[in-house]
Design a protein around this nucleic acid. Structure first.
Lengths: 314, 314
DNA sequence: TCTTTTTTTGATACCGGTAACATATAAAAT
DNA sequence: ATTTTATATGTTACCGGTATCAAAAAAAGA
């Protein structure tokens, strides 16, 4: 491997000048800069990030803290992770995973699955962190625009002329769920319709049971807006069990758009989260925050996309 | 952070002695060792792995190279990844993900999704690597015991008195598939039954179509041994579509046992891969190989477990 | 008892960068 | 032309470990 010194020797300058060309190019004369750059090119020089990390008292590692149960872990984490990994490796950072709150090591944390009850724990963390998932305590976060997502879904159901539009939510008192419900409620009220919300835990079998045991309440021409694809899959199964016709008499719209929507039959219309991008942004944000020594980064909402598929009309 | 020097000062020894206590304890007198250990304890010393990495010309990063398409990426990767991450972090290693063959950086690679055509590429890699997934070229690998898995599945179908046992495989000329088929074939032949194999790409909708278009060939009292849960889910749907009774007249057994088996209704009987453990072993193996400067590690097969569920009798 | 050999510990240089300060050179002000 | 100020580059020390070799101490042999 070629080192700074090799380049310095070749370019007849000191190590520092080479270092500056890399990290603070504007501090170096254009002519010198060009010479150094040529030397780096010729020697195929790549900085040793470990050495740099040592000099900066860094580890070049970001911890991804996943607070929910591994078994519950949705397949979509994979996409998030790919995004994070890509974003981090641009800056030569690597990932370590943590599944509990005993973190330590690493230059910063990306935290997912945090609940309202985690505030106390978050406050005592000694490294910068960003959250995946909305929160209302002022912590930096990135999330899908949940409200917008369900607005899109609800509006689409209306456009497709479903008469009755019912929301099947996840039974958790968390901002992401409130936002999804808000998106649904807002859109209905804009059309002077009365919201109707059920809530269950996020499992397909529970959704299936719910729909079946309330079946008589659902006249044909109903669309179910579901807070997750898992729930949507259960709803689909229940309708099929009851010999309801999808999409003619019953529409189903899911949320997430990773993997499950494809495994279903009919394939789900769903609000697709762009988790890869979200991951990249999380990575960028935590790196920025590390560089800026913990400075506040604010909140970012990513637009989701409505994927139109076989579980709704047309 | 306390450093080697801090400990050395407190214990009245040189840095090297402290370093030896950590890395080559047998080179240090028991008495001195105890003194140093007490000092480390009192100061709550933890070695700085970045400094160590620099001194060893290492990065403390292992690359996870995922060669299949991200979109095809099975949810079970998550479990694998957790295992890998846990195994690596024990030795203060972190992960970077790579999704193509342009790898570089990192002390070694864990490679998944490698196909027979990748041999040439593997041969020119300049860092130690281990594979997740069987191969027959002598590369070090770890995999589920695919053959055993399908033996268990087939034997179980026989025990449950299904008359006809049919294998729905994945249409790829790869060792893992051959092994799964071999497990099925062996077991049948042991009972003087004639194997019947279909092969399709690994998608639930294709499995569904396959079963439906061949429906008249399948008498009641048939069990389908599927090479993946995806396929199994499609088979289940097809049988339900045709109003076949699961599990009384038709049994279905999947393979993988991650996520999908739970989302199905009826829940799948499946051959569960212990991917977390597999990941941990992959991590241990690559770290060992790095330490031993690329020495051959051999192959390891992990026993899978048959999860008995609602898609087979009883 | 005095070498010789072995074992234990220490001093030094180095891994490959970077911050902080020192020096040389050029531009501006007097 | 001389002093002041700004800009560009170099020198040095350090980040926190480890390998290597030298020195000291202990054990073994003569």
């Amino acid at each position: 491997m070629t080192t700074l010194s090799d380049v310095a020797k070749k370019a007849n300058v000191s190590k520092m000048t080479v270092s500056r060309v890399i990290n603070h190019p504007q501090q170096v004369t254009p002519e010198l800069r060009k010479i150094v750059e040529k030397a780096m090119e010729q020697l195929n020089y790549h900085p040793n990030s470990v050495a740099s990390a040592l000099a900066h008292n860094r580890t070049n590692v970001v911890k991804l803290v996943i607070l929910e149960d591994i078994d519950t872990t949705e397949p979509y984490y994979m996409n998030l992770l790919f995004g994070i990994a890509k974003g981090l490796s641009k800056k030569h950072y690597a990932i370590q995973l943590a599944t509990d709150r005993n973190v330590g090591g690493g230059d910063g944390y990306i935290i997912t699955g945090g609940r309202a009850t985690d505030a106390e724990w978050l406050d005592q963390l000694d490294k910068p962190f960003v959250l995946f998932g909305e929160n209302r305590y002022g912590y930096d976060f990135i999330d899908t625009d949940n409200k917008l997502g369900e607005q899109l879904a609800t509006q689409y159901a209306l456009n497709k002329n479903y008469q009755s539009i019912i929301f099947i939510g996840i039974d958790e008192k968390e901002p992401f769920e409130y936002s999804r419900e808000a998106g649904y409620i807002n859109t209905l009220q804009k059309h002077n319709m009365i919201p109707k919300i059920f809530r269950i835990q996020n499992h397909s079998s529970l959704a299936e049971k719910l729909i079946i045991s309330n079946w008589k309440k659902f006249a044909p021409n109903t669309c179910f807006i579901c807070a997750s694809d898992r729930i949507a899959i259960g709803v689909v199964r229940a309708i099929q069990r009851k010999n309801g016709n999808i999409p003619r008499d019953f529409g189903v719209i899911g949320f997430d758009g990773v993997f499950l929507d494809q495994v279903s039959n009919p394939k789900l219309t769903t609000v697709k989260q762009n988790l890869f991008k979200l991951g990249e942004l999380l990575a960028a944000m935590i790196l920025q925050k590390i560089k800026q020594d913990g400075a506040q980064q604010g909140e970012v909402l990513i637009e989701p996309e409505l994927i139109k598929n076989e579980s709704t009309r047309n």
